[in-house]
Amino acid sequence: MKDKKEKSSNSEFTPKVVGFLCNWCTYAAADLAGGSRLEIPSSFSVVRVMCSSRIDHNLLLTTFFKGADGILVAGCHPGDCHYGEGNYYARRRFAQLKKVMETLDLDPERLELVWVSAAEGNRYAEVVSDFTEKIRKLGPNPMNSSTRF
């Protein structure tokens, strides 16, 4: 299922991407990327949560309804979660949510879950840039403002 939007006219489009980052790993990686002065797309917005498991359907769907073009959820590598198993739960919820997205005509590709450790500043910058680029190619969130709340 793909968004029914023209993609050729997207070169000027700046996607709004929200990143929910776990405090213990990915947020630290983002700090490291900052310390190394790596470039992060300015349209990417970080929202800090304590653990990737804090994300739920409501939070993510609402973020799409509010107009996000893409959402990146990033946490500790499997097995590294500061709270034991949170990221496994995050992964499970993700799988379910992707299905829901399809029924809403939202390309599941707009949502991504990645693991970035605190040492991976470079990787963080790459992941964010790549994801933002992917969303740029996908075009704007097809839920136009009238269907948003």
Binding site: K16, V18, S45, V47, V49, L59, T62, T63, K66, G67
Partner: peptide, 15 residues
């Protein structure tokens, strides 16, 4: 300290 409304408001302004 991480309620939905708190996070929604953050997202609102980010977007």
């Amino acid at each position: 300290h991480f309620t939905n409304i708190q996070l929604f408001r953050e997202v609102d302004e980010a977007l």
